[in-house]
Design a protein around this nucleic acid. Structure first.
Lengths: 176, 176
DNA sequence: CCATCCATGTAAGGAGTTACATGATTGG
DNA sequence: CCAATCATGTAACTCCTTACATGGATGG
């Protein structure tokens, strides 16, 4: 999942819930991770310092005077930056969304942001349909190569995963 | 998919089919990629030179005398290295297999290697059962947090994907 | 007092992306 | 002759992992 500042937005997203330390962020990654993502301290701490430098986050003044704990909170700029990123599915020039971009945003959406949530699900639905068509084509080609049995199984797996995704997002969209 | 020499084994795996150039390898990656993986020239060419250095591959003597084409073939060492990697699911000390390691090996398995294929599917089946149990637990926790609706959907997606995988591998195992 | 958890980092290196650079061959 | 394809690479940069380094606070 390279090349899109994933970590930056994950951290900003977590800080929208409440101010916290790098250590807290790591705890949440480890607890909520299994679904799709995690990061070690060696990525988190330097990233926090970069975000501080860019003034997307700031240090909460500590009551405990001689503690090394650094509690971070979002700045106005940080909140805006995160919300702009989250609203991607609402921008008219974007019509497709890969699984990673989709999941990452979905993670931070609740029923309060119903319009973003709907746009996100609809966009993913569109992309899934295209991906399914491509996979059907690949499957029809690979069946002529019995020596590539493993690859055929992979395509079947991808097909059944995407079909079940499409079904799930459609049914969720209906309930919104 | 870091830290496991993926590219090395992908290249060795493709070269078991027939000798080819870096350019050919890239073509195949682009054609067979969509399912899970690809690599740009800037990764392929340096990797080929590393494999040449390690004597896992060698240059095929060219008939065309003044061509810049470099056709690579597996050496005995390269073939052995690849087969050892492919046989991982047969090794008794390994009992679990994540999706990436599973898919990567499955890609190169045909019905000729029925014993490896069976062991691979069985091992993935075991791992899937554990992953499903974890996800069920996470789902039961997240339902108490309606503000994390997006995360709940992600867990549901993962659950339905893994359930459909489990069903698929079970039915394929029955047919082998 | 000692283990575990809390807490913050640096260093080294591998993996992956994007951009750049170059030139031969093939087919219309 | 010109465009597309074949063909091989380097450079710079970001992303990610593993290992290392340090020390305070808490609870049994």
């Amino acid at each position: 999942m390279a090349r899109s500042n994933t970590l930056q937005y994950m951290i900003l997203g977590l800080l929208t819930r409440q101010p916290m330390t790098g250590y807290d962020i790591k705890q949440i990654f480890d607890k909520e991770k299994a679904e799709f993502w995690t990061a070690p301290f060696s990525q988190i701490y330097p990233e926090l310092n970069r975000l501080l430098n860019k003034e997307l986050i700031s240090l909460v003044e500590s009551t405990e005077i001689n503690s090394r704990r650094k509690v971070y909170q979002l700045t106005k700029l940080g909140t805006d930056t995160f919300m702009d990123w989250l609203k991607l599915p609402l921008s008219p020039e974007i019509t497709q969304l890969n699984n990673d971009d989709f999941i990452l945003r979905l993670h931070f959406l609740g029923k309060e942001q119903i319009d973003i949530l709907k746009a996100l699900l609809e966009m993913r639905e569109r992309t899934l349909k295209l991906e399914l068509a491509e996979l059907e084509l690949e499957l029809s080609e690979v069946v002529h190569h019995p020596e590539q049995f493993g690859r055929e199984l992979i395509i079947q797996k991808e097909l059944s995963n995407k079909k079940s995704d499409l079904k799930l997002w459609r049914s969720e969209l209906k309930n919104l």
